[in-house]
Each structure stands twice: as C-alpha cells, then as structure tokens.
Design a protein around this nucleic acid. Structure first.
Lengths: 231, 231
DNA sequence: ATAATAAATTTTGAATTCATAATTGAGTCA
DNA sequence: TGACTCAATTATGAATTCAAAATTTATTAT
C-alpha cells in the first residue's frame, strides 16, 4: 500500500474536511469529469485514507451540490446544466449585490487599495490578452469584496454556489465583446467601491453577474452544438 | 438491544439522509439544547443505527451550521448568537425578496388561492390569539412562496438559513405591537402576490424579514438579561 | 450470433473493531 | 480543603469487516 507521494498524504485535524477541501478542487477544475462516477476507491488510495472519511466527505460535497449520491450506485460528479445555471445565478446575483453593499460599509482603506492593485493587474492581463490570468485575478477581486462584507454566512453561501458554476469553464468561449464589456463593468466596480457607494456597487455587481449568466448559457449552448456535431 | 418503539426505527433508502431529517427537527425545535453536546450514542440507540451513518449525518448538519464539530471532542449544538443573527438575516432578507419576485413570475392561480386560504386562516389565528398556530401557518406561507419561485437552489439555501434562525423561539417574546405590525405586513404580502407585483412583493418581504431580525435581536437581549438576572 | 440467464466479481452501505485522545475519578500531598 | 497527579473509563476518529446490491463475465438456449 501507499504508492502515493508524501505530498499527497493527509494527516492533520479533521480528516473528512481535509478530504472535502482536496476533492472539491478536483471537481471545480473538472479533473473529475462532470457526469462521471466519483472513483471512491482510487481517491482513497490517492489520499491514503480509508473509505469512512472519504464517504463522509462525499456526503458533505453532495450537500454542496458538487456530487449526487445514488443509493447503492455511489457518488456521481454533477454537471452544469442549463436549468442549474438558471437556478443558481439568480441566487448568486442577489448575494453578490449584498456583498457589494456590505463591503462598502465595512471595507478598510487598506483593503480598497489592495483591490485597486488587483484591479490594475487585471487590466494589465486584459491588455496582454492573458485570459487565464484575467480570470484568476477576477476571482480574487470578488473574493476580496466578499471578505470585506464581513459576513461568513454570506461568504460561505456565495462561494458554495460559485464553486458549482465555476465548473463551467466558459472562459475560452467568452467573446471579445463580452470581455470588453466585463472590463467596463469592472471599471465601475472599482470606482463605486472607492467611492463606497453601496447602492451603485450592488447594482453593478448584480448586472455583472447577470451578464456572466448569459455568457455561461452561451457557452453551454455552444457546447451542446459541438456535442451534436462531433458526438 | 432495540428498546425503542417501532415508529422510531429507520429502514428506507439513504440512511444518513434519513438521520439528517430526523435529527434536524430535534435541533430546530430545541429538543437538543443549544450549546450542549450532541448525544451521539443516545441518538444511535434511539434510531437504532450504528455510529457510521450517524456521524455522516452530523457532518451534513455541520455543513448546514446546525452543529459544530470539535476535533476529538464531538459534535455540539450551535446556539443562536447576536453575531449569527446579524450575519444570517441580511442573507435571508435578499433571498426572501428574490423568492417573492420569482414567485410572482411563476405562481399559478391555484397556488395563489392556496396562499390566500393560508393567509385567512392565519388572520383567524391572530384574532384567536393563537400564537403557536399563527407561527405555524406563517411558515407555511413563506414555504409556499418559496416553492412558487420554482428554484430549488433558492429553496434549499433559504430553508437552511431559516432553520438556523428558527431555533430562536422568539415567538413568546414578540410584543403585541410587533405582532400587529407583522399582520399588516402580511396583508401587503398577500395583496402584492395576488396582484403579481414582483417588485413590491420583494420589498415588503425584505422589510418583513428585517423586522423579524429586530424582533429576534430583542428576544436575544431579553434572554441575556434574564440569564444575568437568574443565572 | 444474439438474447437471456446464471455465476462470479466488484462495489456499496453500514456495523464492528481498534488505536488514540479526552474525560472522569481516585489517591496524594501541600 | 484544595490543587495536583496518574490510573481507569469513556468517547472519538478512522480502519476494517461483512452482508447486500449492483455490475460484469460466463454460459446456455434459441
């Protein structure tokens, strides 16, 4: 046993949570492919843990909506469907708006400067046409705003739903027009944040999220078309 | 073994979920007292299940925020604190507003009539000064609106947070004035729903929730005062 | 060759076991 | 009495075991 490298092993505190935090990115990053079966045994071997904590972790991931448990048939990676997008995004939209409003009330000057730095770096990544970097910084900005809202419940709810949507790797599909629009929205986001204009920041964040929803839907439809063409 | 009555036993499908749905009300109804240890062994005996599915269930309940897991010290029933109320209610408020807006778009005439019936019965319970019944129907109304929103993600998120707040059994503390105010708000809720006025329904539901938050906070403070007086 | 059935294998769900950590309680000493 | 130690007990976390269900493979009949 134990053919896995040292770095893949887990020893600290709450084992099942440790596993949740290791398996979740595998799902979010689509390393575990949507619609496929979660390879329970292989994951146990990979992390060198027994089935008990792994199965506990899968139950938590099921509660988060990242896997679906079929009685006597195991755990399956959920996939991003049109219906799911149309369900999750409206919720995410109001949470995002709330995070903006609360952030304006609680964010420190130092945190605003930090977001500004992220924003400027993101603009550079746009100028450089570095989509991957753009998306990474993008997420960091949204995360920073959530943290500034000083509401763990909001952060947890929002990031759980975000994780479900993040699996849609629609980035590659994003049009030049949409990218330019997103950039303009982000200019407004940083401006309203620096002005601590809660209402306007909430509104633009909500609009931003609705546009993202539309973008993800376009990606989903393109994906479907591709499937029916090649498959 | 097995001194528990037939009705307390569990046999169907997904055992851990079955347990979640049995233990959750014990927490929401405060039969498991806030701040106390979850009696894992006793619950296993009560439901006649082994520790494995019980512990899986506790992990799910921890994800929902109803219990807190302390490594090597077991599971503890979380209690409703001022900080938690001030965190959860703002989120609940925007979700409730969203549910109203979506409900206006999707609710059927039949469902509206059903909510109207609930509303009228609730008004009668108010006239009868039957607080317990009032609260029960109240919840049914909010649940009916959530269902009419046709968004499972929203329903799940909202009811998970509601469950956490429901443990605050602030009803007994609700003032006559607050009760009268809540009733007026409900008159508006049913009116806007029947008019399918999404924006206004969203707004009044949000206001209603904010008033509820204030009411819960008053109850919490009264409770604290009582503690420092008697304890 | 194909479909249907039956046997073998694997996977799943849940009980049990076992090592370790935490708690309790008895005994000791100031 | 009260604080402190250390043994006994209990609870916890996680691996293992075991029965049942599902899946795969082999076999038979058409």
């Amino acid at each position: 046993m134990l053919g896995s490298p040292e770095s893949a092993m887990i020893e600290r505190r709450s084992l099942h949570l440790e596993i949740v935090e290791r398996v979740r990115p595998l799902i979010v990053e689509s390393e575990l492919v949507p619609g496929s079966k979660v390879p329970e045994k292989a994951l146990c071997e990979q992390f060198n843990v027994s089935r008990t904590p792994m199965r506990e972790a899968l139950k938590v991931l099921a509660a988060e909506g990242l896997v679906r448990l079929e009685p006597n048939r195991g755990a399956w990676v959920t996939s991003v469907t049109v219906d799911e997008v149309n369900e999750v995004f409206p919720v995410l939209t109001v949470l995002e708006a709330l995070s903006g409003e609360l952030a304006c009330a609680h964010i420190t000057d130092g945190e605003i400067r930090a977001v500004r730095k992220l924003h400027d770096r993101m603009m550079k990544s746009y100028a450089d046409r570095d989509l991957a970097l753009y998306f990474k910084i993008n997420q960091q900005i949204h995360h920073a705003i959530l943290l500034a809202a000083r509401n763990d419940t909001l952060t947890k709810s929002s990031e759980a739903l975000s994780a479900r949507m993040q699996r849609a790797r629609y980035a590659a599909n994003m049009s030049e027009d949409r990218w330019a629009e997103a950039v303009r929205e982000h200019e407004q986001i940083i401006a309203h944040l620096e002005a601590r204009d809660a209402k306007r920041l909430g509104t633009v964040l909500a609009d931003h999220m609705r546009n993202k929803q539309a973008s993800v839907l376009r990606w989903l439809h393109a994906d479907e078309a591709e499937d029916s063409a090649t498959g």
